[in-house]
């Protein structure tokens, strides 16, 4: 059965959005650095969003 949905385009667009997510994540990261709080939660999310974004864009 052939799918009638161009899912690659949808997944590619999702990848674009995920790859852009580090931009808003940078804001709380800066807040963490300013207040001397651990930056790891935001760095981890940035790494995951970049990896997922790249994976989705390459489909």
């Amino acid at each position: 059965m052939t799918s009638r949905v161009g899912w690659r385009a949808s997944v590619g667009l999702t990848g674009d959005v995920l790859a852009a997510l580090p931009v808003p994540l940078a804001f709380p990261l800066l807040v963490a650095l300013y207040y001397g709080e651990p930056p790891l939660p935001f760095l981890a999310a940035i790494v995951v969003s970049l990896a997922l974004g790249a994976a989705f864009r390459s489909v």
């Binding site: 709380p28 990261l29 963490a32 709080e37 930056p39 939660p41 935001f42």
Partner: peptide, 11 residues
């Protein structure tokens, strides 16, 4: 932390 609370606002 203030940064985690700020992330709720940013999202």
């Amino acid at each position: 932390s203030r940064s985690v609370l700020m992330w709720r606002q940013v999202i």
